[in-house]
Design a protein around this nucleic acid. Structure first.
Lengths: 226, 226
DNA sequence: TCCTTTTCGTTGTAAAAACAACATACTTTT
DNA sequence: AAAAGTATGTTGTTTTTACAACGAAAAGGA
């Protein structure tokens, strides 16, 4: 149990909530700890889910299967990660993915209805929980919007400029580190790695940017505008 | 006031809440009605916002300005629409867009903190409000994820197949209507309209799909697999 | 240090998309 | 019904990308 608490207090969902309060919260949330063996299906495609899952240990795959039967791993989640929150709160009738245990897993399941239950409102830490889930959903929203802004650009070049500009803006500096290596960046921008590498070189030759490993410098585009 | 209520009861935020309850809710939310003249800035870029806006009348533009000074209209919102909810709840320090009145507007402003206030928990309809905002954020999340799935495909062809497959799945039928005309679909998928039209024709000739105006039929890809 | 593995850039080729320009069909207005 | 406007499909050209294959540099382990 202490083991669980140690993990939970580090999760986004239980931020700002004291360990002892987490303890009582878990009861009023009717949280259930479940074990899944490797390759076991946690949530199946076309299911309706009403619970969110928190990974206490192990790894979980979010897997999409298209009409042709092609499988795509959308994400791999690990300890402290949350899954199913968007589908649960959006009351989606049939989830379009499989959630599968990549290895043996301990998962804490919480029914989304218990999060906004009447009790929820009585305790101050329950209010914090609602605050946290709102923060999680809203942040993801912002993140997804940013990604769409990059992916919406027609060319790899424009995708790169869009991404790097945003990174510079967030760092409030012309020189900044990006959190990806080349392959990861290509995956994030949904482009071919070598083509992206080529485009980066070109941007470098044109004096728009310079870079070394994960560190990029973005020069004022105005100065280099043709 | 009755006028306001008539609009509010149709908004996603106030669903399932009775008119009389909306009335008292507005007070405990300290909701403020504000007027904006055409072209007036409602939320400015780099501001920190703590309120969400509900459009009672008029239209609002969400406008992005990139480093080069290019302006892009990300969205135009109208009566009953909500804006600023993701940035407010995500506690974003500097919003990356301008929100501008496209015409004279009446906006109802609600501070996000009041939505999850202590009071919020006492009244049952306040709980409904929290439920609604969670639903709004979660649904948007699902929507954005879907869009990213389409945009993430490398080719226009794959973007189309991804989009049409999902439409078919949602309609639970091989024949279905899409909510866009060609230009809107191209904009949604972030591709060139004529190139998309060309690809649609090709898919048609290959027997994958058939279509007339907004009605599409998707044939089982297995049968037509080369 | 040497070997292995991973990461990154480069090149060439074939495929695909963007773009522009035009043709056709369908709508709406007058 | 004619005219104007809009939506959609078609075609050709240029640009861009994906893909594959390779080599060099860097990182990590034995």
């Amino acid at each position: 149990m202490d083991n669980i608490l140690a993990v939970l207090k580090k999760t986004a969902l239980f931020q700002q909530i004291k360990e002892k309060d987490i303890c009582s919260l878990l009861k009023c949330l009717s949280a259930q700890q479940k074990l899944f063996a490797k390759n076991e299906i946690i949530f199946g495609i076309n299911e309706k889910i009403t619970a969110i899952g928190i990974i206490l240990s192990g790894k979980v795959q979010i897997m999409k299967e298209d009409i042709l039967g092609n499988r795509t791993i959308l994400a791999v989640l690990g300890e402290r990660d949350l899954f199913g929150e968007a589908f649960s709160f959006a009351k989606v009738e049939k989830i379009p993915v499989n959630v599968i245990a990549q290895e043996n897993c301990e998962i804490l399941m919480i029914n989304y209805r218990n999060i906004i239950s009447a009790c929820a409102l009585a305790c101050p830490f329950h209010r914090q929980l609602v605050d946290n889930i709102l923060l999680i959903l809203a942040k993801k929203n912002v993140y997804l919007n940013q990604k769409i802004e990059h992916l919406g650009k027609r060319t790899t070049r424009d995708k790169l400029i869009s991404f790097l500009s945003m990174q510079a803006q967030e760092a409030q500096a012309h020189t900044f580190q990006i959190p990806y290596n080349r392959q990861e960046l290509a995956d994030y921008l949904c482009v071919d790695r070598s083509a992206m590498s080529h485009e980066l070189s070109k941007l470098g030759k044109e004096g728009m940017i310079s870079f070394h490993k994960n560190q990029f410098t973005l020069y004022d585009p105005i100065e280099y505008d043709p």
